[in-house]
Structure formats: C-alpha cells, structure tokens
Simulated assay, not measured.
Amino acid sequence: MTAQTHLPSLLSRTGAVSALTIAAVGGSLIVPGGAPEAQAASAYATKALKVAASKKGAPYRYGATGPSRFDCSGLTLYAYKKAGKQLPRTAQQQYNRTRHISASQRERGDLVFFHSRGHVYHVGIYAGSGKIWHSPKTGSVVKLTKIWSKSVRYGRVR
C-alpha cells in the first residue's frame, strides 16, 4: 500500500490531519481557496526553473543567451531551450508568445513580465513565494529576487 492510498484511511481514522503529517506520508494537500502556485508545474516549466537557478551568479551581459552570461530574456530563452521549449529572443516577443494568465493562476516556472506604458521591458522565471530568477542589469548577476513591482504580467510557455 502506498502513502497515497494509505492517506484516505489515515484521514478516516484520525479525523483531522495536519499538513505536515500529510507531507510526511507523501500525500498532497488541496485546500479550497489555497494558492494555485502549490499546484504542480509542468515538467518543462520545472526543468526550466531548475536550469535558471543553476545559473545563479552568472554575469549579466546585454544580448547574451548563455551558457555563462545572460541578459534577462537570454536567461529565459536558455532555460526553456534546455527544458525542450523554444522561445523568441526578446522579453516583448516572449510575452507575445506565451499564454497570458492572471497572478492567481501563476505557477513555478511561469514567466513574469515587467511592463511600463504597454511595453514589456524585463522578464524572469517565477520561483514561487513572490520571487523570480532573473538576470537584472549590467554589473549584476543571475539571482533570486522578490518581485518588486505591481506592474507585472504572467505568461505560461506552451
């Protein structure tokens, strides 16, 4: 009997179980109204997120697409390419190519687009908990950062 099939009997015997107990037996917890980011991301989005995270500390270089230097859209292009998905080169083109989703629908691995006056100027990969992996600017490196603006849109790579 697996933990997944054992979970219903555990719940019926105990009545109530904490989220930690469920996690300890390998189950999953679905909470009505819970954060959608708790949902499992697609395999390619998960892989792209891991690739981006593996580039932590790589220097920013305008126009660079890896493997050792990146600009913002170069990082997302590289990460998704390693995950088996093709993206166009620029942040605006990537936004145009993704399926647009709301903040409440975002999941780890989705793209986060920063915009101003109808123009997308920056992109990162959503890491969960309001943070992104991105390559921010000249003089900086690939890093995990809290989303700093409310002027963001989300896109899911198809």
Score class of each variant (00 low, 15 high):
Gln92Asn: 03
Pro59Glu: 00
Lys85Asn: 03
Ser9Trp: 11
Gly128Asn: 01
Ser54Lys: 04
Leu49Arg: 12
Gln94Cys: 07
Ala79Trp: 08
Val31Ser: 14
Gly63Ala: 06
Ile30Lys: 14
Ser54Tyr: 08
Lys55Trp: 00
Ala103Asp: 06
Leu29Cys: 00
Ala19Trp: 04
Ala52Ser: 15
Leu10Gly: 08
Ile101Val: 14
Arg117Met: 09
Lys56Leu: 15
Ala58Arg: 00
Ala64Asn: 01
Pro67Gln: 03
Ala16Lys: 15
Ala103Lys: 10
Leu77Tyr: 14
Leu75Met: 03
Ser28Cys: 02
Ser104His: 02
Phe113Gln: 07
Lys82Val: 05
Ala103Val: 04
Pro32Gln: 13
Leu10Lys: 15
Ala40Thr: 14
Arg97Asp: 15
Pro88Ile: 08
Lys131Pro: 02
Ala40Asp: 10
Gly74Cys: 04
Ser9Thr: 15
Leu10Tyr: 15
His119Phe: 08
Ser12Asn: 15
Ala24Asn: 12
Val25Lys: 06
His115Lys: 09
Lys47His: 12
Lys56Glu: 08
Arg97Glu: 15
Gly124Ala: 10
Ser102Gln: 03
Thr21Ser: 02
Ala45Ser: 06
Leu7Ile: 00
Ala19Gln: 09
Gln86Met: 06
Gly74Met: 06
Thr21Tyr: 02
His6Met: 11
Lys55Phe: 03
Thr65Leu: 03
Leu87Ser: 10
Arg89Asn: 02
Arg13Met: 12
Arg61Gly: 01
Gln39Thr: 10
Ala19Tyr: 04
Leu7Glu: 00
